[in-house]
Design a protein around this nucleic acid. Structure first.
Lengths: 224, 224
DNA sequence: AGTCGGTCTGAATAGTTGTTCACTTCTTCA
DNA sequence: TGAAGAAGTGAACAACTATTCAGACCGACT
């Protein structure tokens, strides 16, 4: 007599798994990565600590999936914004300002995913996450270079530097405060996007135009 | 009968303190911040674990001092390089390439000081360290702006972004490998410096010139 | 030489959390 | 309905290290 998993059970299992992951994500967003401990997450997901281990082999796996999850969302948002832009330079501008806004809208989560100390080893997952995002940005830079809008350069290095700049400026310990003020937030996103575009070689005047074009659409696309 | 500390004793105590700090630094440089544990550091410094606590109230204090120490060295190197430059733009270029070279010459240590997860809270110390360095860079940017070489901008934000770019590109997990090859290293430092200068608004052609001027002197000044 | 304050030692302690597992509860299917 | 297997539980366990502290040791002063 073979035991088969009912559709209903499969669904419930998947839901529980998502609930655990969601609980982890909420915890990270609210209180940082350090607060993502098995016991609290289990409570939040309405399961026992042991149950978490039926879904994730270890805490490292749980957090790795969390990172991958958030990373996937961010990558999707970047692609959406960039693909909606009219040309390669606009796409790059849109991608950059999307990262900026996205990161700012969930600062604690972003910091946790990117750089906050975690007691388990999640370097592989973080590495993969960064690689995906930088590659996406790098390919956007590359498109702009091929279109003759930017000078030839090491696009992978440029993309890495560019994201480092955004992250440090926006979620690092020296990030400006009072970013809850929408005007300040918009200014900051614009400044940072401008810096980033100039860094890869967009001329100043042109960059200003691109930034203005990019920031507003990105804002609406974030929520989508 | 009052006990007075002999000069000799004072010297021995200071030496021991330095030895502990040096042991911590060496450990961090060789094996990363995670390896900086009380017991191994004590062994390396030829003292018992308990002795460490006669010099540092806690591990957090030890690591905080380590961070401050390294930071002080880096700041001095930046100032030396920038002050030797002929003008404000050159000074900025020199400062940036000095950071790049300095960081590259001790990648593991830099990563440990800057961002590697540590089990104790050293955020305050890291914050202070970054604040010092970014302020220095910010003031160099400011000088160039005042000299009319750069457009007006939020120099603190720019400095933060700029250092974020350098760090991510050079010591982050996506940093290029084989940087032991001197040619590759020089190229990378130049590329990153170029990116940084363009970001704050140096025109491309001018930036190239500044980079070439800055990188070689910086190299010699590092060792000094 | 002797005493006494300061310094050093390192084994024992303590606190923190991820992980396990014997047991209970639930679900499937004959 | 009841047997068998899957899923869930949560208290107990384990491992890791920072930190402590009672006693050993050292150097300074009489």
């Amino acid at each position: 007599m073979v035991y088969r998993r009912t559709h209903q059970v499969v669904k419930r299992l998947a839901a529980r798994r998502s609930a655990i992951l969601a609980a982890a994500r909420e915890t990270a967003a609210e209180a940082g990565m350090a607060a993502v401990q098995i016991a609290p997450v289990a409570v939040r997901a309405n399961v026992a600590a042991g149950t978490v281990y039926r879904y994730f082999p270890s805490k490292a796996d749980l957090i790795s999936e969390l990172i991958a999850d958030v990373s996937r969302d961010e990558l999707a948002a970047i692609r959406r914004a960039a693909d909606a832009a009219p040309g390669p330079s606009s796409a790059l501008a849109a991608a950059v300002s999307t990262v900026a806004l996205h990161v700012l809208s969930q600062r604690k989560l972003a910091w946790g995913i990117l750089a906050e100390p975690v007691d388990v080893d999640v370097t592989a997952s973080r590495l993969a996450s960064r690689r995906e995002i930088t590659s996406e940005i790098a390919s956007r830079i590359d498109a702009a270079v091929r279109a003759g809008h930017l000078p030839a350069q090491d696009t992978q290095l440029a993309a890495t530097a560019l994201l480092g700049a955004l992250h440090e400026a926006l979620v690092g310990p020296l990030a400006p405060d009072n970013l809850d003020d929408p005007a300040k937030l918009r200014d900051t996103v614009q400044s940072v996007t401008l810096l980033a575009l100039r860094a890869v070689g967009v001329m100043d005047a042109r960059a200003r135009g691109l930034v203005v074009q990019a920031v507003l659409p990105a804002k609406t696309l974030i929520g989508a």
